[in-house]
Design a binder for these strands. Sequence first.
RNA 1: GCCCGGGUGGUGAAAUUGGUAGACACAAGGGACUUAAAAUCCCUCGGAGAUAAUACUCCGUGCCGGUUCGAGUCCGGCCCCGGGCACCA
Length: 813
Amino acid sequence: MSYDHKSIESRWQKFWSENQTFKSEDISTDKPKYYVLDMFPYPSGAGLHVGHALGYVATDIVARYKRMKGFNVLHPMGWDAFGLPAEQYAIKTGTHPKETTHQNISNFKKQINSLGFSYDWSREINTTDPNYYKWTQWIFMQLYNKGLAYEQEVAVNWCPELKAVLANEEVVNGKSDIGGHPVVRLPMRQWILKITDYAESLLDGLDDLDWPENIKELQKNWIGKSEGVELGFDIDGHNDTINVYTTRPDTLFGASYMVLAPEHTLIHSIVTDEQRSKVEAYIEETKKKSDFDRTEVNKDKTGVFTGSYAINPFSKEKIEIWIADYVLISYGTGAIMAVPGHDERDWEFASKYNLPIVEVVEGGDVSKAAYTAKGNAKIINSSNDKTLSMDGLSVDQAIKEAILFIEKNSIGKATVNYKLRDWLFSRQRYWGEPFPLIHKDDSVELIQEKDLPVMLPEVENYKPSNDGKSPLSLVKNWVEVKDESGNIIGLRETNTMPQWAGSCWYFLRFTDPNNTIEAWSKERENYWMPVDLYIGGQEHAVLHLLYARFWHHVLYDLDLVSTKEPFKKLYNQGMILGDDGTKMSKSRGNVINPEEIMDEYGSDSMRLYEMFMGPLNKSKPWSTKGLQGCYRFVNKLWSIIVDENGNLSSKIVDNDEEDKDTLFLHHQTIKKLGEDIENLHFNTAVSQLMIYCNHLQKCSTVSKKLIEELVIILSPFVPHLSEEFWSLLGHSETITYQPWPQFDESLIQLDEVTIAVQVNGKLRANINIAKDSDEKDVISEAMSLENVKKFTSDGNIVKTIYVPNRLLNFVVK
RNA sequence: GCCCGGGUGGUGAAAUUGGUAGACACAAGGGACUUAAAAUCCCUCGGAGAUAAUACUCCGUGCCGGUUCGAGUCCGGCCCCGGGCACCA
């Protein structure tokens, strides 16, 4: 009988579902816990992608392995279902996003189940379910009460095409991350979360995390901490001072002009009548520019002189004050001291407008380019009788000296700045979580906790308006909040929360998904958190992964969770490319549909192949030929264990006698599989299984005990097939909770080893000799070989290097 | 420009972290079985040379140099590819 993957796989999927095989204990008193999590998907209409499967197979193998190692495993799945596609589909067709979402989820779930994943479906969650978003709103209330949510008129990233405001993280090169539509700056009233309050905390927490270095680096760069000093420059003839932020106070003597951002409020009071019209025209010009145009690095710098002067607090010289859009109002103080000698941007600007360039760090030629060396570079031209002298100091020393002087004379103080901006948290959208907020006259109030959730109302029109009002603003009887006698007491906030809100805490809800009294019980949270292993794509490096950490840090400070960091170990799966080596896309026609693959070859083969393709974190091209190789392997396994009549093969015997080679491979395979799964090196685990099975195929008999252990270690990779084998081997229970077999280290040791014999580092011969032979014996054996003699006879052996059981090297001169 | 990754056969990749480079698989070629095909099984498979020989020699992990008895692995300098950030003072 041939291997019929369809009937085997559907039979065991049904068995697992009916028996709730993978249900975790809420809290186990005798088993240690292991929480292994996938980044839950947005259930798109396109269905499951082979790239989804890659990460899910990896976590499933770990989950199944840990169960066999005696852990109480939490391996849940859910749906991050609020989001634009369902809403855009609703605008086009009038179908309620709820319906689209429902259909997509059931399709996704069907596809996920057909891959044989061991999820505990009793914990399934859906971010659009009021029983879930009730608690998303509740967490927002905690943030609000802690003073971390505020409303402000701000220049926002408005996308006219999507008719929505986007977060900085969602804007890429002046275009929307989703769809690539142009984004412009517009002032709008918005809800903002003070993530900047947690900049330091988020930076600190990274140190102890077992995350890929590049992701940590990405977050570090995004937070963008810089240490410097904020100091005031007096304005000549005014009472005001201009505050600037600099990381190079050592170059203060070289500050030969100043620049204010065009939005800077001081401009109007310092501009001279003579320059006023030019300055105002420039400000107007700036307003018209998109953020993208303004931050384009290679564009020509422009600016206008204000007519006023400031006094350099170190040199006491009068320097011109300009405005220019290369200075950003949103960073530092919105004003800079310009040091053209040692800053490329300032140099470019000074050259264009003929502003003085002063050399204060020795080593370059400031008439040709800015000289930006730091560290030990020497300070020159930096002394003044009235203030201080820094000549001869290194840059590092001068920075310290300058700060000391600045603080002592109350000119300014040492300051830390971050590139991270507060998180714009409202969207003019229907398909998102409503805010638990009511506007009353001039104030805003949270609703009562007992009134949660604020339900998303039914609407007829999902289209946002052109002026940035959410479709919810049209639902009068929802917006108006009335008291018992029908008087309007306030108006609901009509913006909704961004897509990221639901995913900021879903891993907490999985620990206690059906709790109706609280978001999670402290006890269960304490038992399960943190997530031990989190696998997903790299695209969330500064979005979901930073936002979720932010919320978690806040919850920790509020004593609502027991760990500061939510995800102990993070691992990024690589991308699966099309067989042409490019990204899979419909337009290229190189998309592989997992359903077709599973239909033809079975999900066990597909799982195995995705793991065998290469290292989990690397990008690699799909090859259906490669998959067929795994299919061949699976069939080979079948032919070893099952005979033509579908019974257990007669070569499997109850005899315990085994030859050394088989025992060696058997124990080596158990050891290697365990190590490889722990290290997420699934590709080498699969190849070890292939090596072992190639050997077994050649054996005339194999003991049943070995086959049983083999089937157990196979089961995380090919779970359906393994259950089938397990039952053929005479077991009625699932294989899921069989203990992982022990390996015997002594059987992995060979009695005879091959030692490479080198002369001057070049291989000249191999000798087979008893393991742990004396160095003397190895040398005399080696010396007797013709080829060794040939290369050693020309000179004297000056040195002999012996690596036991591995290598012998003669150094001949 | 700055910060991360990464360059190994025709292809996906291994290499116990300084010790026999190319495991395992794909593709290709040859053979067995078959009327034939599929499936399966066996053999060859980095390059060059040499041989009766799968005895042997030389070259080979992006390029150049260094450390070492010995380098894919460590150090210095480049080149190329992928990703991220980018007028952040």
